[in-house]
């Protein structure tokens, strides 16, 4: 950090040293500081979304909890583990790059990329599921099923474009999935109904926040549930879910691009104990993307789980 020294000696230009620097140390310091400042920028970038999340969740906690319960926490958790493993392989890549061990580098980068792809695969599966159940917050982007559509034989994953009603979809007794225009649909009002009833019975209780009492009711203060109003709030949850995870996935895709380049460089034995900062920088990026997910997982997938004991 202090002013660097120029040597009067003959300057030996190391390979990989750019002309504006005096030595590799200065170059590494600059590049790593640059990367960290870029990550600071990324923190604020995602931070804007976290602010939106914070405000909206504080306004509509129950809608968020309901929406969250509809995400597959098991898949979310599995994805968390996948990313953690990929972070480990990434950290080890840096370790072996420092040692100049080409084969381990190449192998670990391939592994890291495979885990990254696994993550994206699981994510895609989840998105498809939301598409099938009418949970994509944008009208027209959900599976379209006409009211008189035939009931399909099979049970399990419904592929995009399929318009039949799958037998496995609805809870027993619930209405089948019908969505002629592919709109956002919400059909689970048990939790909010339960809380609304309790609130009505005990006006001084804290089942709903004051803001919720006003905004979920047919008219302010009536404490009679207006399903459409509640649905709009759940849709906000899914909107935030899609924007946050989508932007995160985009970062993953960019990360995979960087890793491809890194793989090529490692394959050519570019890195050794003296020169490995590209590996280290890519690692910083990869770990950062992992950290974002470490927060997204509990904040999106887990926040309403504890209501499950109500058995609704």
């Amino acid at each position: 950090m202090s002013a660097h020294s120029h040597s009067d000696k003959f300057v030996y230009h190391e390979p990989g040293l750019q002309h504006q620097f005096d030595d590799m140390g200065q170059q590494e310091e600059s590049v790593s500081l640059g990367m960290w400042l870029f990550l600071a920028q990324e923190i604020m970038f995602f931070g804007g979304l976290f602010t939106a999340y914070l405000v909206m969740r504080s306004k509509y906690p129950l809608a968020f909890a309901s929406g969250s319960n509809h995400l597959d926490a098991f898949l979310g958790g599995a994805n968390t583990l996948v990313l953690i493993v990929s972070s480990l392989t990434m950290a080890l890549t840096v370790y072996y790059a420092q040692k100049g061990n080409r084969n381990m580098q190449v192998g670990l980068i391939v592994l890291t990329m495979l885990f990254g792809l696994t993550f994206l695969g699981i994510k895609a599966y989840e998105y498809t599921d939301k598409y099938n159940h009418g949970l994509v917050p944008m009208a027209g982007l959900n599976r379209r099923v006409k009211a008189d559509a035939p009931v399909a034989e099979h049970v399990g994953l419904v592929l995009p474009g399929e318009t039949a009603v799958s037998a496995s979809e609805a809870k027993p007794g619930a209405e089948p999935y019908v969505n002629p225009h592919g709109e956002f649909q919400w059909r689970e009002y048990e939790l909010v109904q339960h809380m609304m009833d309790k609130q009505r019975a005990e006006p001084n209780g804290h089942y709903l926040t004051l803001n919720e009492q006003l905004t979920y009711s047919t008219s302010p203060g009536s404490l009679i549930l207006d399903k459409d109003k509640f649905r709009d709030k759940v849709r906000i949850f899914f909107y935030i879910y899609f924007v946050m995870t989508g932007l995160h996935a985009l970062h993953m895709i960019i990360g995979l691009g960087i890793m491809t380049w890194l793989l090529w460089m490692a394959y050519k034995s570019t890195f050794n104990a003296e020169y490995f900062s590209p590996v280290e920088m890519s690692g910083l990026y990869w770990h950062f993307v992992d950290i974002v997910w470490i927060f997204l997982f509990p904040l999106l997938y887990l926040l309403g789980r504890h209501y499950e004991h109500l058995g609704l």
Binding site: M1, L33, A40, M44, G47, F50, T51
Partner: peptide, 17 residues
Amino acid sequence: LVWMSAVGAFFWLSIMF
């Protein structure tokens, strides 16, 4: 400095929150 830019960004985020 690295340590500061990491912590600093979080601090800034907490200002926004």
